[in-house]
Each structure stands twice: as structure tokens, then as C-alpha cells.
């Protein structure tokens, strides 16, 4: 009797996109195939603008008096910037704050990835008013890239005390659900069944779990982090007040854990906060909870 066994694939099944396979021409002759950002970006400017309009929730724009069609905001100023250059597989949309304030209200960056799917590179949602913390530049004015390559410890401590998570310069907009739901609608239109991201911090991984994401990599790390932050665990023991970001009660909250991890506490486990990857399947919730009964 012959039967089929399964072995780990030897060849690259998930091949890079081929323009012929994944073109915007599918808009007219195929209703289900996935379309790449690159092919959208190669469309005529006006079509491109119509397509990317689907990415932003109209209600978010309305909240800031921005016209959802013309993108004209208060003082008659253009208030949405779309970066989608021809031959580029990247799309970046920024909703600018009223009165030309420094930080955009919303920044979304999407890119084609190497296996015919879409990555959400960046989603930053800022309260336009309220305190701002300059965690984005170090004391010499060099960019910190969300605190990943450099750190501004003075501003980070202030931000932490103000209730922010690592990587934030302002309080969040509490609109991630709205924005991600809209993104799903947009991706469904593009023919994608899932999209991916790499969570910048423990706090963002926690948010994305609540938004229905599963893990491509790092689910076990999240479980390990939870276990080791419990009393008796190695991370718990390393909350030794050796830095302002390692206070003894930080294990109790998502933000507390996120700051300690940002501060490098995973070293004691010989782990690092990188290489996590999450996936959202359109319409489905994975119901992952790696921090049960969590407090943000």
C-alpha cells in the first residue's frame, strides 16, 4: 500500500512575487487573485489615490475635520500624505495633525513582502494634543528609531511615568481597532487573505493579540516571558531597581513588562526582543492570550 507522507518542503514553495502573476491587471480580469502594492503603485496617479483612499477610516478623518475625498483639512491645508512611488512595493500614508503640529496623527506603512503577501511595517497613532516626549531623538539629536538603535533615557523615563509604552512619543489614539478593521477591508479588496507584522514592543504584541493576531514566530517567547515575570521567575528576579525601567512591580502590567524588555531584561534568559512575527487572517481571530487577566 502506498500512501502520502509529509515532509518539510525542500524547495521554496512560497516564491517571491512575479509581476505577471500579481499585477493590477487582475482588477479587470480576475476578482480573487492577490494584487501587490508595487502594481498599485504603477497605476495612474488618480487611480492610485482612489485605491489608497480605502485605507483610511472616514470616521477617523472626520474626527479631525479632514475631508475623506480631497483630504483637505482645517485651514484648507492638505492633511493626508500618500507616498506610493512607481516601482516601489511600499505605501506610506500619514494623516497630519491640525495646525501643522510636529507629529502625524496616524502613520501607516505597508510593503509587499517576499512571499506574495503584505507586511504592516508601521502603525503609529498619536493623540495630537497633550504631552510630547522626545524619545525619538537622543540627547545629541540623533534619531533613536523608536528606541531600537539609540535611547534617550531621560525622555523615556518621563514617558514611562506618563503612562506611555516604549516607542511612543505621545499617548496613543485608541483607534487601532478602527484602523485595522479598515485595513482588512482594504486588503480583502486587494485579494489578500492575511497580513503580517513584526511587533516593535511587548506592548504592541499584546495589542495585536487582542486584535486577533497569531504568531508566525515568538509565541513561545511570549509564553516564556509571562512565566518568567511571575514571582520566582528569572525576569521577576531581575526587576532589581538597577535602572529606572526595572522597578519591582513592573511585572504586573503590560507597560511595565514592555519597558523592562525595552531596557534589555531578556538578557537574563539569553533572549532578545527581535524576530517575533505576527499574522492576522482576515476576518478571523486567533484569540491568543499570552498574558491572562492582563492589566495594561
Amino acid at each position: 500500500m502506498k500512501f502520502l507522507n509529509l515532509r518539510v518542503s525542500q524547495g521554496p514553495v512560497k516564491a517571491p512575487p512575479s509581476p505577471a502573476e500579481i499585477s493590477a491587471g487582475m482588477l479587470t480580469h480576475d476578482a480573487v487573485g492577490p494584487i501587490s502594492l508595487r502594481s498599485i503603485n504603477n497605476l495612474h496617479e488618480n487611480i492610485k489615490r482612489r485605491v489608497y483612499r480605502g485605507l483610511l477610516p472616514a470616521s477617523l478623518l472626520a474626527d479631525f475635520n479632514i475631508d475623506p475625498i480631497t483630504y483637505i483639512g482645517q485651514n484648507n491645508s492638505p492633511s493626508v500624505e500618500v507616498t506610493a512611488l512607481p516601482d516601489s512595493g511600499l505605501a506610506k500614508i500619514m494623516v497630519l495633525a491640525p495646525d501643522g503640529a510636529q507629529d502625524p496623527i496616524a502613520t501607516l506603512e505597508l510593503s509587499d513582502n517576499t512571499f506574495n503577501s503584505i507586511d504592516l511595517n508601521l502603525m503609529v497613532l498619536n493623540q495630537p494634543d497633550g504631552s510630547r516626549f522626545a524619545t525619538d531623538v537622543d540627547l545629541d539629536g540623533q534619531p533613536t528609531i523608536y528606541g531600537t538603535v539609540r535611547r534617550n533615557l531621560v525622555e523615556e523615563q518621563k514617558a514611562m511615568e506618563h503612562g506611555l509604552a516604549p516607542g511612543q512619543i505621545r499617548s496613543g489614539l485608541s483607534a487601532s481597532k478602527l484602523v485595522l478593521n479598515q485595513l482588512e477591508t482594504f486588503l480583502a479588496m486587494m485579494g489578500h487573505r492575511a497580513y503580517y507584522l513584526e511587533p516593535l514592543t511587548y506592548a504592541s504584541a499584546w495589542v495585536f493579540e487582542r486584535r486577533g493576531f497569531a504568531y508566525v514566530r515568538g509565541h513561545k517567547l511570549m509564553d516564556t516571558i509571562h512565566v518568567e515575570f511571575q514571582p520566582g521567575g528569572q525576569l521577576h528576579a531581575s526587576l532589581d531597581v538597577s535602572t529606572p525601567f526595572r522597578q519591582s512591580d513592573q511585572w504586573k502590567t503590560v507597560r511595565g513588562r514592555a519597558w523592562a524588555i525595552h531596557d534589555g531584561i531578556l538578557d537574563v534568559l539569553d533572549e532578545r526582543w527581535d524576530n517575533l512575527r505576527m499574522v492576522k487572517q482576515l476576518g478571523k481571530s486567533a484569540d491568543v492570550v499570552t498574558f491572562p487577566e492582563s492589566v495594561y
Binding site: 500500500m1 509529509l6 515532509r7 518539510v8 518542503s9 508566525v216 499574522v279
Partner: peptide
């Protein structure tokens, strides 16, 4: 799952 894909290989049971 989201790991490496498997591929079928015909083998004897």
C-alpha cells in the same frame, strides 16, 4: 500553522 510547509512524498505505509 505558520511554520515551514510540508510537502507530500509518496512512501510505503
Amino acid at each position: 500553522d505558520f511554520g515551514l510547509a510540508f510537502e507530500p512524498v509518496e512512501t510505503a505505509a
